[in-house]
């Protein structure tokens, strides 16, 4: 049938722009990266660098704590924002603001809340309200790393809250009505009704977020900037340093490749979940 042939041609024409884009600007750079990072000696160089292992540890902490705190709070808060009250709707608009605001400028602002030329907003408020001297935030590894995580959660939690809000709205009303009739409220309702229905979405989003957060650059580069003395670097900012301060881009790529043993399984599970067509958004 010529109609079917025509349709096939059209389908190929429709998908061609993305196919070209994917090959030229996604697959090729990935292949190029694999090739750049394929020399084994690079990895011995990496291990030999005293900056590498702490940066890998920071990346694990940043992603592990940041993503989980962010996703779990987003899931809970999406329930809060389900309530049909006018002030909660208005609040949702304000709550989403951090996601719509540019990262660099807000990161700089956040940094200056903690450490201004004299003292930042936070420390002023601490001494004003509680009468205590705030710490020098970026002089301490834990506080600096914590500040990075807090900014990261602030910036990205609203986005995932919106996604979960959509997921909750997709739960058919009769299911939640039936749960109410059966007397499931509060925590029990969440554990036995809401969460099982959202579990798959939650998993997919968490995996996606892990993959994205492994490469988080802006937060660390602009909030702590690696302070104190390079101790809060993550692998991305370390790679940036290798590539542009030391002019060794291959070493930068090797630093990246070292997270692949973690990332590849994450993406494989993600692909399976999406392929299974059970994902509800």
């Amino acid at each position: 049938m010529s109609g079917a042939r025509q349709d096939l041609t059209l389908a190929i024409a429709f998908i061609a722009p993305y196919a070209a884009l994917f090959l030229a600007f996604a697959l090729y750079p990935i292949g190029y990266a694999l090739w750049m990072g394929s020399k084994l000696s690079l990895y011995t160089d990496l291990i030999a660098d005293p900056l590498y292992l702490p940066s890998a540890l920071n990346t694990a902490l940043f992603v592990g704590v940041g993503v989980n705190v962010k996703m779990f709070l987003a899931l809970l808060l999406s329930g809060f924002f389900m309530q049909p009250r006018w002030w909660i709707r208005a609040l949702l608009v304000v709550y989403v603001l951090p996601w719509t605001l540019p990262a660099i400028q807000t990161a700089i602002s956040f940094r200056w809340m903690l450490s201004g030329e004299e003292d930042g907003l936070v420390n002023r408020l601490l001494s004003l309200l509680l009468g205590i001297d705030g710490p020098i935030w970026f002089n301490h590894w834990g506080l600096a790393l914590g500040s990075n995580i807090v900014f990261y959660v602030w910036k990205w939690m609203p986005f995932w809250t919106l996604i979960f809000l959509a997921g909750r709205m997709a739960i058919p009303r009769d299911v939640s009505d039936a749960a109410t009739v059966d007397g499931a409220t509060g925590v029990r309702r969440f554990v036995h009704v809401t969460f099982p229905l959202l579990a798959n979405l939650y998993l997919v989003c968490t995996l996606l977020s892990i993959a994205w957060t492994m490469g988080e650059f802006t937060t660390v580069y602009f909030v702590s900037g690696g302070a104190p003395v390079w101790s809060t670097q993550v692998l991305t900012t370390l790679g940036f340093h290798y590539a542009f301060d030391v002019a060794n881009p291959s070493l930068a790529v090797a630093a990246v490749m070292s997270v692949l043993p973690v990332l590849v399984p994450v993406v494989v599970v993600l692909l399976r979940k999406v392929e299974a067509r059970t994902l509800q958004l």
Partner: peptide, 26 residues
């Protein structure tokens, strides 16, 4: 067709910010 759109998620195997190094040369 869905092979391509599923494969598209491979884009996220390497974080965007890491790809800047090969991207610069490309």
């Amino acid at each position: 067709g869905s092979l391509l759109t599923n494969a598209s998620l491979l884009t996220y195997t390497i974080p965007v910010s890491f790809l800047i190094f090969p991207f610069y040369r490309i």
